[in-house]
Design a protein around this nucleic acid. Structure first.
Length: 130
RNA sequence: AAUGUUAGCUGUUCUAUCGUUCGCCGAUUCGUCGGAGGAAGGAAAGUCCGGGCAACAUAGAGUACCGCACUUCCUAACGGGAAGGUCUUGAUAAUGAGAGUUAUUAAGAACAGAUAGUGCUACAGAAAAUAACCGCCUCUUCGAGGUAAGGGUGAAAAGGUGGGGCUAAAAAUCCACCGCAGUUGCAGGUGACUGUAAUUGAGAGAAAACCUUGCGGGUUGAAAGGCAAUGUAUACCGGGAUAUUUGUUCCGUUGGAGCAAAAUAAAAACUACUCGUUUGAUCCCGGAGGGUGUGCCGAUAGAGUCUGUUGGCGACAGCAGGCCCAGAUAAAUGAUAGAAAUUGAACGGCCCUCGGGUCGAUCUAUACAGAACCCGGCUUACAGGCUAACUUCCUUU
RNA sequence: GGCCCCAUAGUUCAAGGGAUAGAAUAGAAGUUUCCUAAACUUUAGAUCCAGGUUCGAGUCCUGGUGGGGCUA
């Protein structure tokens, strides 16, 4: 689990879980990315399940939406070890949804920086709370 | 050789590291792991047409509604395609006194009907489709009548050109030629239609106004639909049985059987309406309905594609052989780094017809765009490259 | 994914194919007032884009662009 794979058990695939997340989750905004997360029981052993979304109203073309989702997913996949290590001993599970909310396409480096920033914040908040 | 237009084809490649998904093979502690493979397009797009497929009656009739509209063919089908016909516009040439006609060539056509009917044609103009304002002429002054040759208005003015005659003045009255429309005959063509002869006629435009005629269309779309699991009482589904009342006949007696009629019956579904069809009341047996929401099938081998050959002007069709070519579902096919190729820019070297070619290193750019059940089309978007045809220009012979 | 609707001044709406596309409100300038508001006068401002039919198109037809709604 400590490698860089990103298989189905680590992604948000349950319609029910997503509905629950949007209803009760905590919203957070880091520059162009809006993040909704919730501590909840998941149906897999993975500590975190993540999903990525780009609204159709901002980007009309499917090519642009695909590009941004791929960049966000890649950034998450390469850095998720940070998040997993931080949550290792807590026993909690998180569902996270990343939503892109800017009209321009930004580079991979920028997206990666924002996602790392979010992970650090989530860990410090969680440690402080417990 | 350059320039542009149109049509067709193509539409970046390789390596390394880390990843996604689907078959196959092997292992497994059933969580996964390993091996070897497949993984976006010509438009996957717009959702504009047509078809397959599925449910609702094996999908029925008429009206309404919607769509289409030269002919023949292709096709599973089409509003698509091929070949042809006709018309319009432009150019060139020939001919004619002129109107016009003919030939070649290019482009285009929602190209049935305006002589079935209703309505419309602003402003201007006498008048916009049963034409008389000025002008001309006649009668009997006012006024009435005749006349479409001339005038001006308008997008459009009542077939056109030339000539003669009649007449009060004129005309479509006459002659010749040209054009248009209807009917009939002959010849050619599968047909649209063409050629030709006779005869009749003079009534603009618009159907992308309503409409008429002919042809076609049942409705809803994979979120269709089917299976399984979870789970609770009836209403839901499937199968079977029986009908209730009245009259009458028979058996012959607190009842049973046959026949006929009526009622239950109001309504619901099938497209809006009319018809038509189905359901319908009670009991028994079996399965469960609604809601939440999971997995699988539908769902990836097909009107498939490539090669050859035969038929056809062609679209296309037949035959033979080879090939298997994405299958995701909060939704895969990617990220990073480095090379190469192509394009453009300025720089330096070399060559020469002084405008380019070629080599080197640097910088820049690499389009439009992402499958969502599957096919056939149409439309729209598209950096660069290749091929073909044509236009224009230059040089040489 | 599928189905449907709409587009006119800054905004909300009109306009049987026919003078210069109209009204309300918002804007600007002026009058009035010590100043503001209200009132009055004047003024500028628009048919989503491209083709086609027609003598003539906001309206009719075709293609595109943008926006909105419904559907488990």
């Amino acid at each position: 689990m400590s490698n860089q794979t990103f298989s189905k058990s680590e992604r948000l695939t349950s319609r029910k879980a997503i509905a629950n997340l949007f209803e009760k989750g905590t919203a957070l905004r880091i520059a162009p990315i809006k993040i909704i997360y919730l501590s909840m029981e998941l149906d897999s052993l993975s500590p975190v399940q993540a999903g990525f979304s780009v609204p159709k109203t901002i980007f009309k073309r499917a090519v642009d939406r695909n590009l941004l989702k791929r960049r966000m997913r890649e950034a998450y996949r390469r850095n998720k070890k940070l998040l997993y290590d931080g949550l290792e001993n807590s026993g909690k599970q998180f569902a996270i949804m990343f939503i892109y909310s800017k009209k321009e396409v930004i580079s991979y480096e920028e997206i990666e920086g924002k996602i790392i920033l979010f992970m650090e914040r989530l860990i410090t908040k969680h440690v402080k709370g417990s």
